[in-house]
């Protein structure tokens, strides 16, 4: 698989999905390599896929960004109990949509399958360690300067 094509498809899908589903406009940026750019808790979502190539997608965002994305998706007030309750699900669902749009672009007519996304909370240090294994990654900044990262791990098993 052409990694540059995959990266382009992932970035385009992510920006479009965030705009259409959560009305969030983002810019691609260089990824910060130190922990200070991240809040203390990072929600990390994985979505495995199989097709001509197998692997897994990953999305990482702060819990605060999860809440704000959920609020936009369901037209709730940011900080409301409802947006807090849906924060994790919003990230799972956004990765689901981003993965589907990316795979459609890279696999086209080939058969492929996506699994159900799973979320876990990690510290910034744990997150930065897992990111080192990524084959492709995209860093996006939101208007509020909250970072959101996406990655693809090709041909890899379970996250460590």
């Amino acid at each position: 698989m052409d990694k540059e094509q995959l990266r382009g498809a992932l970035a385009a899908a992510a920006r479009q999905v965030l705009e259409d589903a959560a009305f969030v406009f983002t810019e691609e940026a260089d990824a910060p390599t130190d922990e200070s750019a991240w809040s203390t808790a990072i929600s990390q979502v994985y979505l495995p896929f199989v097709g001509p190539t197998c692997g897994r997608f990953m999305l990482a965002a702060s819990s605060r960004l999860g809440e704000s994305l959920a609020a936009e998706m369901i037209a709730a007030d940011p900080g409301s109990p409802e947006s807090e309750e849906e924060a994790e699900d919003s990230l799972r669902e956004l990765l689901n949509m981003i993965s589907g749009a990316t795979l459609e672009e890279v696999f086209r007519e080939e058969p492929w399958e996506m699994a159900v996304p799973e979320l876990r909370q990690v510290s910034p240090a744990e997150y930065l360690a897992t990111r080192l294994d990524a084959d492709v990654w995209v860093h996006l900044d939101t208007e509020d300067a909250d970072p959101l990262e996406l990655a693809v791990f090709l041909g890899k098993g379970e996250p460590r």
Binding site: E93, N96, M97, S99, G100, A101, L103, E104, E109, P111, W112, E113, M114
Partner: peptide
């Protein structure tokens, strides 16, 4: 669905 597999 998010699954855009046209065959399916």
């Amino acid at each position: 669905t998010s699954d855009r597999n046209q065959l399916r």
